[in-house]
Write a protein that binds this DNA or RNA. Structure first.
Lengths: 209, 209
DNA sequence: GTCTATAAGGAGATAGAC
DNA sequence: GTCTATCTCCTTATAGAC
């Protein structure tokens, strides 16, 4: 890269935010890991918040672009009629999960999980995920025509929760090194679970029993 | 209560951990909210970690006991044969979700979500949730006899992720900001989604397309 | 049991040399 | 662009009066 120090800071921040959480990781720890000093992060990113935004721009936005590319391809294959729920889950989850299997890049996937998990209400989140979310809600409605738009939003939310917890939870099969489950298997299990959930019958109007 | 200050500290900590996250909330902010001083928390709980453990004992453990009571009742109703997946999701999620609708107790539900989500060390988590998790894995296998025990663990994990994300980010930007937060409706939608996921066909062995 | 006061160190941010 | 040194505020934790 043109700017090795800047890249080293981004890489170290990514790794530490992903492993320990964003709120629990200090700039000092990141700079020590990056082999640079406190002043460098302020020179390159202005502040801790600026660093976090740079990380999102570098990782979350490309993942969302990939999701929309995959969704475009699905909609091209199903110009009318019902879209398979499996395809929707795959288009949404594969771009975020596919780096988990590579020890060199697994922290990229986990960072995405941390960001979504820890900062669900921020304006930056809406800016980055808003368009993607709206597109996927429309797709979910075409996969499950029996549900309302409100319920499609809720089901997208459930799918995101399932994926994010899988990306970040310490005892997750994808994060616990003692459980040798490979990424492809986890993705297929996630697709089996979440696609059945997306296409499920409508929720009962009140307590059913 | 016998010890108003201790209770006030627990209440304030619960509220602030739930709303802002555990790692992001300082003892100082908690003591200010509780109207007490820094020394009190060390007198009553020894340390920040001790306070967190007291919170877990007060809230997470009773929720798990309630889950197991409900699961016992279900197993009594289905001494042999298949257990409905809806019943399992309801037994697991209702005790954690039921306080969301009450503004006075909503933070109790959210705290449980935060604790599971941030999972500071897996040892305490295993101690508190281990027994409950094993019982529910057995129940999931009786609701979905076609899946392996390993896959039952993964599906329990997915269900937990769906619930926890709902508890902690009920107004996530991935959802319509105007979406309903009526607790009973959310619970029924969660049951519809997760029970379909629990009972879903086996995951594909490899990429299906 | 609860307080004040303070220790001892970590946090993010900045000035200015090179 | 990167460094050292430092500022100011905040953190958990403790000692000791009452």
């Amino acid at each position: 890269m043109n700017d090795p120090t800047k890249e080293r800071i981004l890489d170290a921040a990514e790794r530490m935010f992903a492993e320990n959480g964003v709120a629990a990781t200090s700039l000092r720890a990141i700079m020590k890991e990056a082999g640079a000093n406190m002043a460098a992060v302020h020179y390159h990113f202005g502040s801790r918040e600026g660093l976090l935004e740079a990380l999102m721009a570098r990782r979350a936005e490309p993942v969302n672009r990939r999701r929309l590319e995959l969704l475009d391809a699905i909609e091209q294959r199903h110009l009318r009629g019902v879209i398979p729920a499996e395809d929707i889950v795959r288009a949404f989850c594969a771009p975020a999960l596919e780096m988990l299997g590579d020890p060199q890049r697994r922290h990229v996937s986990r960072l995405i999980g941390r960001i979504v998990m820890e900062a669900p209400d921020s304006a930056a989140m809406t800016r980055i995920f808003g368009t993607t979310a709206r597109r996927f809600v429309s797709a979910i409605q075409r996969a499950a025509p029996h549900i309302t738009e409100d319920e499609a939003w809720v089901r997208l939310h459930f799918m995101v929760g399932t994926m994010v917890f899988t990306l970040t939870a310490p005892r997750s099969p994808v994060c616990d090194p003692s459980m040798s489950v490979d990424t492809q298997t986890v993705l297929e299990q996630l697709i089996a679970f979440a696609s059945a959930g997306l296409a499920a019958p409508c929720a009962a109007e009140s307590g059913k029993e």
